[in-house]
Simulated scan of single mutants.
Amino acid sequence: MSRVAPRTRVVVNHEEQYSVWPADRQPPAGWEPVGPEGTEDECLDWIERTWTDLRPLSLRRAMAAAEPPAAP
Rank of each mutant, 00 (worst) to 15 (best):
E40Y: 11
A29T: 15
E32V: 06
W46Y: 12
A62F: 07
V20K: 08
W46H: 09
Y18M: 04
M63E: 14
P72F: 10
Y18K: 03
A64W: 04
R9A: 13
E16V: 00
P36E: 06
Q26C: 05
T52F: 04
A23V: 01
D41L: 14
P6R: 09
T50I: 05
A71P: 14
L44R: 10
G38S: 02
E48L: 08
W21N: 12
T50M: 01
L54A: 13
T8G: 04
A29H: 11
E16T: 04
R55M: 02
Q26Y: 00
V11C: 05
G30Q: 04
D45L: 03
R9C: 14
P36R: 06
P72W: 07
E32F: 04
E32I: 09
G35P: 02
S19D: 15
P56N: 09
E48C: 03
Q26G: 02
T50P: 02
P6D: 10
E37D: 08
R9E: 03
D45I: 01
S2Q: 11
D41N: 08
G30S: 00
E16P: 02
L59V: 15
P33G: 05
E48T: 02
Q26M: 11
S2E: 10
R3C: 07
R60T: 04
E15R: 04
R60Y: 00
G35T: 00
H14C: 00
Q17K: 03
V34C: 06
P56V: 08
L54K: 15
E37S: 09
G30T: 06
A66M: 08
L59A: 12
D45S: 12
R49V: 00
L57A: 12
L44I: 00
P6M: 08
D53W: 04
L44Q: 03
R7S: 14
E67W: 09
E32N: 08
T39G: 04
D53Y: 05
A66N: 06
D24A: 07
A66I: 00
A29D: 15
V34F: 08
P28A: 04
C43E: 01
E37P: 02
E48R: 12
W21V: 11
D24V: 06
R60V: 06
S19K: 11
A66R: 11
T50Q: 08
R9Q: 15
A62E: 12
R3V: 08
E67V: 12
I47R: 07
E42P: 01
R55L: 08
E16D: 14
A70H: 14
A66L: 08
R7G: 10
E37V: 09
V10H: 01
E40T: 10
W51E: 06
